[in-house]
Design a binder for these strands. Structure first.
Length: 472
RNA sequence: GGCCCCAUGGUCAAGUGGUCAAGACACCAGCCUUUCAAGCUGGAGACCCGGGUUCAAUCCCCGGUGGGGUCACCA
């Protein structure tokens, strides 16, 4: 039997990275087994069909590089892939269950069931095999125990009693998660249910249903949770729990995929930098850890930097460009201008491996796009030495008059200016860096000068000299 | 609280009834360099606690503690 797995998100309007990780593990498993990866939208509770919320899911998956074999947009032999379009199926199953006395209509007050005493109103049930609008349908809890072998969690057993006669169909006629899930997973021939471990206690409930329906249950694999840096379950509260935020910050999809794969799973060997193909080749569900893992931005950033170096300079330029446009540092028109593209590419090149993710073009390169530059007061000491000041002035003039403008000519100008003032190159270089960029760290000084440009370099040097008049 | 699960450095994470208990990120130091990164070299840092089983437990068993999940007509 060929492997069929599904990722079944509900369209909430955003993609939590924990869900992305779940999708990823499903996908890695399916691809590694030559199986089928299904995308199914669980929108039974949705008042309206939220087109946009579905797009957030499909766009997100596509962006990170997860493709689906069946589901929205491409459809497939087991459709439709929206639960809201499968209501008849659930209705049929509910009727069959009622007819076979495995479920019954509930006449209780809607909120009348205390949490600590599972509802048992079946004595009031009627042996009616028709569903009635306005009445919920409950399962007849068979009691006993449910047990199963979870691929990651091992052998698990539960006392069924604790789940009561839980609801299968709400009084508005829509199915609950546990019901729709079982019906669909069976109808879609799903062989492995891989989901977050917040679903473990739903599994025994679903097992009762499989039994009542006479269906063979799939294998289950419950993935451990992803925690935030503070050890609590990753949530919006942690700032960046949404896929879109990473994309907007200029992180690379392959890096995020790589990192997410490392949360709860480790490849054999010592290499952690892995492209999708490698991930697929090595991934095994039985190697997934049971304990939750903390999401750490530093490691994602590190992996991102490594993946970034695999990208061409044009690609890196485009990533930077996107952030510059988003921050409105460049106008859309400028973003189209070939000269701008060329310039951004040069800046990225000068930044080298300092450019670890998109947004860093703003952190490190903002000043390349402004006329002037702000220099923090605490950097005044760089301009205290009169010899440095003199060398700065000489450099400024030479920069303005230079006939050729390359790193080499700039370097010789700087070194000569230092020498002429009986200085080592270092203090002049530091002062120049501060004067031109307002920062003490950055790319090669000579590239920095080149990219700032002849006129602007001259102007900024004098600006700095004016801002920090000699002490006397 | 009931039920379920988890527990190796700060974090991710290998691993074994007998090993100096891998590796990665982060951290510290040195080298390199015009700075910061990167790179190279070196360093610090861990088997939650208590009982058992055993010649021997990080590893097996029990208990405790701590953490997480779940107890809906949400998914």
């Amino acid at each position: 039997m060929t492997v069929r797995v599904r990722f079944a998100p509900s369209p909430t309007g955003y993609m939590h990275v924990g869900n992305v990780r779940t999708a990823l593990f499903n996908w890695l498993f399916a691809r590694g087994q030559d199986g089928t990866f299904i995308l199914r939208i669980e929108d039974t509770d949705q008042q309206r069909h939220v087109e946009e919320a579905v797009a957030i899911i499909t766009d997100g998956l596509r962006w990170i590089g997860i493709d689906w074999d069946e589901g929205p947009e491409i459809e497939g032999p087991y459709g439709p892939y929206f639960q809201s379009e499968r209501l008849d199926l659930y209705h049929e199953h509910a009727e069959a269950l009622v007819a076979s006395s495995d479920a019954y209509l509930c006449y209780c007050e809607r909120e009348g069931v205390a949490a600590d005493s599972p509802c048992r109103c079946r004595n009031r049930a009627q042996s009616d095999d028709r569903l009635e609008p306005g009445l919920a349908v409950r399962i007849v809890n068979p009691g006993g125990r449910s047990e199963f072998d979870d691929i990651v969690g091992g052998h698990l057993t539960f006392d069924n009693e604790q789940f009561g006669d839980y609801i299968l169909v709400k009084s508005d006629g829509t199915p609950t998660y546990n019901f729709a899930n079982v019906v669909d997973d069976h109808a879609m021939d799903v062989t492995h249910v891989i989901r977050g471990d917040d679903h473990v206690s739903n599994t025994p409930r679903q097992l009762m249903l499989y039994r009542a329906l006479g269906y063979a249950p799939p294998r289950f694999a419950h993935l451990p949770q992803i925690l935030g840096p503070d050890g609590a379950r990753l949530s919006k509260r942690h700032g960046a729990a949404s896929l879109t935020e990473y994309r907007d910050q200029g992180f690379l999809p392959e890096a995020l995929m790589n990192y997410l794969a490392l949360l709860g799973w480790a490849p054999p060997g010592e290499q952690e930098f892995l492209p999708a193909e490698e991930l697929i080749a090595h991934f095994r569900l039985e190697d997934v850890r049971k304990s939750p893992a903390q999401f750490r931005l530093e490691k994602l950033t590190h992996l991102n930097a490594m993946h970034m170096q695999q990208r061409s300079s044009a690609e890196r330029r485009d990533i930077a460009l996107k952030c510059l446009l988003k921050e409105q540092i460049l106008t859309p028109d400028e973003g189209e201008d070939p000269r701008t593209l060329c310039r951004v590419e040069e800046i990225i090149e000068a930044l080298g491996n300092r450019f670890r993710y998109g947004q860093q073009i703003v952190e490190f390169g903002m000043h390349f796009f402004t006329e002037g530059v702000d220099i923090p007061e605490e950097l005044a000491s760089h301009f205290a030495d009169p010899r440095v000041r003199e060398a700065l002035k000489m450099s400024a003039e030479a920069f303005r008059k230079a006939d050729t403008w390359t790193d080499e000519t700039i370097e010789s100008i700087v070194r000569e200016a230092a020498k002429a003032n009986d200085l080592k190159a270092a203090p002049l270089i530091h002062a120049l860096r501060v004067a031109l960029s307002g920062m003490t760290a950055g790319p090669s000084l000579f590239s920095l000068v080149r990219l700032v440009g002849q006129e602007r370099a001259h102007k900024r040097i004098h600006g700095a000299l004016d801002q920090f008049p000699s002490a006397g």
